[in-house]
Design a binder for these strands. Structure first.
Lengths: 197, 197
DNA sequence: ACCTGAACACCGTTCAAGT
DNA sequence: ACCTGAACACCGTTCAAGT
């Protein structure tokens, strides 16, 4: 009858899982290391073996967020057509969809406060996401459906528009109905912005 | 010799001023109501007369942020030319300039967690800012320099692009050097996106 | 009306000690 | 290696009481 074994087994992932649930249901401000420990059935000091600070846990959370975002975008490309417009459309919907479904997490991912040494690993993972968009746009250039020029310079306005739209919906500036049809306009506008010539 | 008079005089604005300083210098996570009270020379319970909770103070801070952002954009239009491209350029630089100079504050302004009843007044003030951009774009339409169509639908991609670019620079995704020259590309892209036809 | 003092129920983090 | 127990220095918030 060892209801609570001394070794948890996988405390790290249990904490992360519980943290993400709380983040989704009650927001980042409701995240408490002590409460997490309680819910997972462990002493208040236990989490410190796996996360040297609360911020470290938040960083880890943000990192998994970037990984899942990258997966979502990659998945969106599977079913998409070959034309640049189709691929961009799919990626944009995947990004905004992720943002709506993980508002608090997205807020965390792009918040200003990341511990200096964590933002190294975090920055690397974050760039995997922007690399996907760069590749998407590079493809478009090769197909002659995107204007010529340095890839990063063409891509930046595209990324900014997507990121901004996601941010506006997540922060509630855009009423949910607008967020729906507005995306069509956004994609059309982006396409005009990076069309050839 | 009343070094610390019983009535502070203007505790509310003193707290807000100190809070903004701390926000700028040490970030939102370093904001403590008790510390603020200490620094301003008042008891820990004193702030509660002026802000019914810590979140209420954060909301007030966000509100002043939106007011100053609106002022900055309005000021940018004073010296700008009449052409839509000039006005957009000025507004964009004002917005991104504000974002860079007030990174933590911008994070706060567009964060997900605003108390339900504060987001009413806050939403109103926030809309003053987007109204400025709507007016800017409406002018462009009347001059024949912006494509025709429902104002909100034309404006949304413009706002998204500006907001996203500001967010990317603030969260450190864009290296500071890129943030500089990247803005030119962004503005050019926005102009193509909302050009006539 | 505005503030103090003291209390309450929490935090994050550290560190000896246990298994 | 992983966790507990207890402690430390903080929090935000409330409420009677003072001016």
């Amino acid at each position: 009858m060892t209801n609570r074994p001394y070794h948890h087994g996988d405390l790290r992932v249990a904490l992360l899982a519980r943290a993400e649930e709380t983040l989704r249901e009650r927001g980042a401000s409701a995240l408490s290391l002590r409460e997490l420990a309680r819910e997972v059935g462990v002493s208040p000091a236990a989490p410190s073996r796996h996360f040297k600070s609360k911020q470290a846990l938040l960083d880890a959370l943000a990192l998994t967020g970037f990984e899942r975002l990258a997966e979502a975008i990659a998945a969106s490309q599977e079913g998409a057509g070959e034309a640049f417009a189709d691929r961009l459309d799919a990626a944009a919907r995947a990004y905004v969809g992720f943002a709506v479904a993980n508002a608090a997490l997205l807020d965390l991912m792009f918040s200003v406060k990341h511990s200096p040494q964590a933002s190294e690993a975090l920055g690397a993972t974050a760039h995997r996401w922007s690399d996907q968009l760069l590749e998407l746009i590079g493809d478009g250039q090769r197909r002659g459906e995107v204007r010529e020029g340095p890839l990063e310079r063409i891509a930046l306005p595209v990324v900014a528009a997507l990121h901004g739209y996601a941010g506006l919906t997540v922060s509630g500036v855009l009423p949910p109905e607008v967020a729906e049809y507005g995306l069509d306009d956004l994609i059309a506008s982006i396409l005009r912005g990076c069309a050839p010539q």
